[in-house]
Amino acid sequence: AIDRGEIRSLDATLAELAPRLIPRGADPRVGDITIEHLVTMQAGLERTSGANYGAWVSSGNWVNDALGRPFVAEPGSRMLYSTGSFHVLGAVLSERSGKSLLSLARQRLGQPLEIDIPAWTRDPQGRYLGGNEMALSVPAMVRFGELYLNGGRWGGVEVLSEDWVTRSLRPRTRSPFSGLSYGYGWFMGTVRGHSYALARGYGGQVICIFPDLGLCIAITSDSTRPARSGGYFGDLMDLIERSIIPAALSEGA
């Protein structure tokens, strides 16, 4: 969206980009929330995830509910894991492009990567959910991971700018739950001296890339079961750290 001029920069604010998304009666600071605040989940608003998720998705307007919540931190000060932040981000992308999030995903990712992106959940206003419930096959997950390993290129075509890929994988904040660093949609950590980036979906859906090893790992799990950092997700990280990475290093040797 930035490369196409639909969004000026990550510093652009909600008031500048999509003022009609800001609900009446919202805290005046909502208009100053930037794209970077949303994509790093540092908007400062009360979370819509965890114990708040059910009430959020039961509301009549998910964007209004997310942006109408009180501030619990200054924007940009710390990570507050919130699906609502990414839902607002998706709504902004739709506003600026004039296309649904599904159309954007299919045209700008699905077509160049030659992967299928099925329709998924929409909010009461018809906006596709920006942070949950998309579905990809395992081969499609691998292609998305390899897109980042290839610096944003696939089949000789630039799908994402190399600059965006580099900036996405740069730590910006840290998760208070897992302790992992967080960039633009990616969690990050280190295993045996090798840095990795992790795309993490509910229930234990994982795309994990190790750039210096040229390795992409895709894992799917029962999506009806939670995968908290200290539980099943910890088991998946053990699988990656104690089985897959040693095997990859051995193969490389």
Score class of each variant (00 low, 15 high):
residue 95 E to S: 11
residue 152 G to N: 11
residue 198 L to I: 05
residue 43 A to Y: 04
residue 114 E to L: 02
residue 142 V to R: 03
residue 165 V to E: 06
residue 169 L to H: 14
residue 111 Q to T: 01
residue 220 T to F: 00
residue 71 F to V: 10
residue 13 T to Y: 06
residue 229 S to V: 11
residue 139 P to T: 00
residue 4 R to C: 02
residue 141 M to W: 01
residue 60 G to D: 15
residue 195 S to G: 13
residue 95 E to L: 12
residue 162 E to K: 14
residue 223 S to D: 01
residue 66 A to R: 14
residue 130 G to L: 10
residue 193 G to A: 05
residue 209 I to H: 04
residue 151 G to S: 10
residue 8 R to W: 02
residue 103 S to K: 14
residue 136 L to C: 01
residue 23 P to G: 13
residue 62 W to D: 00
residue 230 G to K: 13
residue 76 G to C: 09
residue 253 A to N: 06
residue 247 A to Q: 10
residue 248 A to M: 09
residue 197 A to N: 09
residue 161 S to C: 09
residue 219 I to C: 00
residue 30 V to Y: 10
residue 104 L to F: 06
residue 8 R to V: 10
residue 200 R to L: 12
residue 10 L to F: 15
residue 234 G to V: 04
residue 25 G to N: 09
residue 147 L to Y: 09
residue 220 T to Y: 05
residue 149 L to K: 12
residue 183 G to Y: 09
residue 129 L to S: 09
residue 63 V to S: 06
residue 195 S to M: 10
residue 122 R to I: 13
residue 15 A to T: 01
residue 83 T to M: 03
residue 161 S to G: 15
residue 31 G to T: 01
residue 83 T to D: 12
residue 64 N to H: 15
residue 183 G to W: 06
residue 16 E to P: 01
residue 18 A to K: 11
residue 41 M to Y: 04
residue 189 G to L: 13
residue 190 T to Q: 15
residue 164 W to C: 04
residue 159 V to E: 06
residue 104 L to W: 11
residue 209 I to Y: 07
residue 98 G to N: 12
residue 16 E to S: 09
residue 79 M to D: 01
residue 157 V to H: 12
residue 120 W to L: 11
residue 219 I to S: 02
residue 150 N to T: 02
residue 37 H to W: 03
residue 60 G to N: 14
residue 253 A to S: 14
residue 44 G to W: 06
residue 71 F to I: 07
residue 158 E to C: 03
residue 214 G to F: 12
residue 243 S to G: 01
residue 144 F to D: 00
residue 134 M to I: 14
residue 201 G to L: 08
residue 52 N to C: 08
residue 182 Y to G: 03
residue 33 I to C: 08
residue 196 Y to T: 10
residue 131 G to T: 01
residue 134 M to F: 14
residue 22 I to C: 07
residue 183 G to N: 08
residue 142 V to L: 15
residue 58 S to G: 14
residue 26 A to E: 08
residue 247 A to G: 02
residue 30 V to I: 10
residue 23 P to M: 11
residue 250 S to P: 00
residue 167 R to T: 08
residue 101 L to H: 02
residue 112 P to Q: 09
residue 247 A to K: 03
residue 53 Y to H: 11
residue 78 R to Q: 15
residue 104 L to V: 03
residue 184 Y to I: 03
residue 201 G to I: 07
residue 155 G to S: 05
residue 189 G to W: 14
residue 210 F to P: 05
residue 93 L to M: 15
residue 76 G to I: 08
residue 185 G to I: 01
residue 52 N to T: 03
residue 194 H to V: 10
residue 83 T to S: 15
residue 172 R to G: 02
residue 147 L to V: 08
residue 60 G to V: 02
residue 71 F to M: 09
residue 80 L to A: 04
residue 72 V to S: 12
residue 80 L to N: 05
residue 249 L to T: 06
residue 110 G to R: 08
residue 62 W to F: 03
residue 19 P to Y: 10
residue 62 W to H: 14
residue 101 L to E: 07
residue 138 V to P: 00
residue 176 P to Q: 12
residue 221 S to P: 00
residue 133 E to V: 04
residue 39 V to F: 12
residue 124 P to V: 10
